[in-house]
Design a binder for these strands. Structure first.
Lengths: 141, 141
DNA sequence: GCAGAAAATTAGAATCATTCCGAATTGTAT
DNA sequence: ATACAATTCGGAATGATTCTAATTTTCTGC
């Protein structure tokens, strides 16, 4: 039994996801994102992850987040030029940014809706990624 | 007749749009954007605008673009964390980023489509702004 | 298990789009 | 004309992100 096995056992997260070796740091960051609905920034992840990994560096947080994004384990979400946020929800969905509170809500498509049905795309287009972001306010919650 | 009048006369652009005084710099930048379908970045605008305004500063380009955006005269478009791009098309539309060539194409909605018809928004939401961006490739043009 | 290779992590420096600052210029109103 | 406000300007500052080089950890073949 390798130390990698032990890490995985303790975390309940497999040793590898989508071909990415889940090191301790990647596991903890992934676990943190799964437990948060708040779409944290890299810096927010960095501050919160220190509870479980006091010696982690910001560079590693960026490295891990990038690795997780590139292996389609999490998604990176950008609002205008604000710091990137990270999201463990892989379903096709958009993001609503409530300006009053600063919170971000996932927005699902209504059932049966296909993006390509509603957009007038140039012919022969292969779409790799779609990002839908909405800004506004929750009038009275 | 003020110098402002003269500027406007020569450019064919009104002295004021949406409550924003159209200075020489703002006019030239607006005119440049109207003539380009290329969604240039601030720096690209800066380089091209020097032909008509050799002494303009990059700070002014940023100032003008921001003023034009805030007065809803142009739109700011962001792809991931790349430099912002600017677009004179005010119709509700999305942007397709062709990874092969780096070019950006406006994407219209099919007629009769309303964003709120297809998204499952939280109740009592007031949407101020929508951004739809697509990444992919033009298979064979 | 062990040597060597490969991958991951780290701290700090570097990058680069954008914003800020203070001074100078231009425009507007009286 | 004179004063007050808005705009422009060059350069410095900011801040998220990326890069670099060194160290540590993990993996592979014996």
């Amino acid at each position: 039994m390798t130390s990698q096995d032990l890490i995985s056992q303790a975390n309940g997260i497999p040793e590898e996801i989508n071909g990415l070796r889940m090191t301790r740091q990647r596991q903890e960051i992934y676990k943190l994102l799964m437990g948060e609905r708040s779409h944290p920034t890299a810096n927010e992840v960095f501050m919160r992850i220190k509870e479980s990994l006091p010696n982690i560096s910001l560079a590693t947080v960026y490295n891990c987040l990038e690795a997780l994004v590139q292996h389609h384990i999490i998604r990176q979400v950008n609002f205008d030029r604000e710091p990137s946020r990270y999201c463990p929800n892989l379903d096709e969905h958009g993001h609503f940014h409530d300006e009053a509170t600063g919170t971000i809500h996932d927005v699902k498509f209504k059932p049966g809706i296909n993006l390509t049905d509603i957009l007038d795309l140039p012919p022969h287009t292969v779409i790799k990624d779609v990002e839908i972001t909405l800004r506004g306010q929750l009038a009275f919650s």
